[in-house]
């Protein structure tokens, strides 16, 4: 497929990771005070901000309101400076509309929608820096922001990418460099605890022989991401709790 070896003779990828290693994930909850919930996530060099407003009354067209479920409104956007080439990225272009829809689909699966009839939740995600795996980072950030907003979710919803290197090895969490050089990329959004797949997208066709191993890798990536997010949420609760006096003992909360 590609000329360049994505995994070297000694089993390292271009940036020094092994095939089954995620990039470094750093995240923070409650980065803004205005929204009801917010989060910031870094996956490698990909950086995403997410903000959640609601649940609140349905704004705009009241007819959209549903009697049995909350309306989830998602908006994806990319900063002008997010890629190496500066480019105006108008809202509502094809790519961002598509990603907004996907994000909405992913979140509906996790949020307990029936709890808030006649209301609406707004989720805004903004990519500050794009270095591969934009969509998974958005999903992960949105999950954290929802948790920060205190909206009940069934479980963590996590996303991850995987691809195939040197035509036979599955690798997880694809960077921008690998995206360009490599073959098809598989993106999945999953509920890692119940091992349900919410959304799956392929950038190109996979051969059936490869799909299974790549899918497994991506699922594994989702599970690992979930553990990292979970840790971050716990730390956040300890921090918040400590400052409000809930956990005056200062001990780490253990689940």
């Amino acid at each position: 497929m590609s000329r360049k070896e994505l995994i070297s003779k000694v089993g390292l990828r271009l940036d020094g990771r092994r095939a089954d290693e995620l990039r470094r994930i750093r995240c923070k909850l409650g980065v803004f005070s205005e929204p009801d919930g917010s989060a910031y996530i870094e996956q490698g060099l990909t950086k995403v901000l997410a903000a959640v407003y609601g649940p609140h009354q349905v704004r705009g067209n009241r007819l959209k309101a549903q009697a049995d479920a909350v309306i989830i409104n998602c908006q994806f956007s990319m900063a002008v400076f997010s890629t190496s080439e500066r480019k105006k990225r108008p809202r509502g272009d094809r790519k961002s509309t598509e990603l907004s829809l996907h994000l909405r689909q992913a979140l509906i699966a996790a949020i307990e929608v029936e709890k808030y009839p006649w209301s609406q939740i707004d989720v805004y995600v903004e990519v500050l820096h794009a270095d591969g795996g934009i969509f998974p980072a958005c999903v992960n950030a949105a999950t954290l922001a929802l948790i920060d907003a205190g909206i009940p979710i069934k479980e963590y919803v996590c996303a991850c990418t995987a691809s195939i290197a040197n035509n036979n090895q599955a690798m997880v969490d694809i960077s921008h460099e690998e995206e360009i050089l490599g073959g098809p990329t598989l993106t999945i959004v999953a509920l890692p605890m119940s091992e349900k797949i919410v959304l799956m997208e392929m950038s190109q066709r996979f051969h059936l022989d490869h799909l299974k191993s790549v899918l497994e890798k991506a699922l594994e990536g989702c599970k690992n991401t979930k553990n990292i997010l979970d840790q971050a949420v716990q730390n956040h609760i300890v921090d918040v709790g400590a400052s409000t006096g809930w956990a005056s003992t200062g001990e780490k909360v253990k689940r």
Binding site: L14, D15, G16, R17, R23, R24, G44, L45, S84, E85, H129, D131, S175, E177
Partner: peptide, 22 residues
Amino acid sequence: TKIFIKKNKIGNYLKHAREHYI
């Protein structure tokens, strides 16, 4: 993790950031 920054020429000068895991 360490991050290093590389300048690349693709027609015009672009700044690329790549990760480098040690």
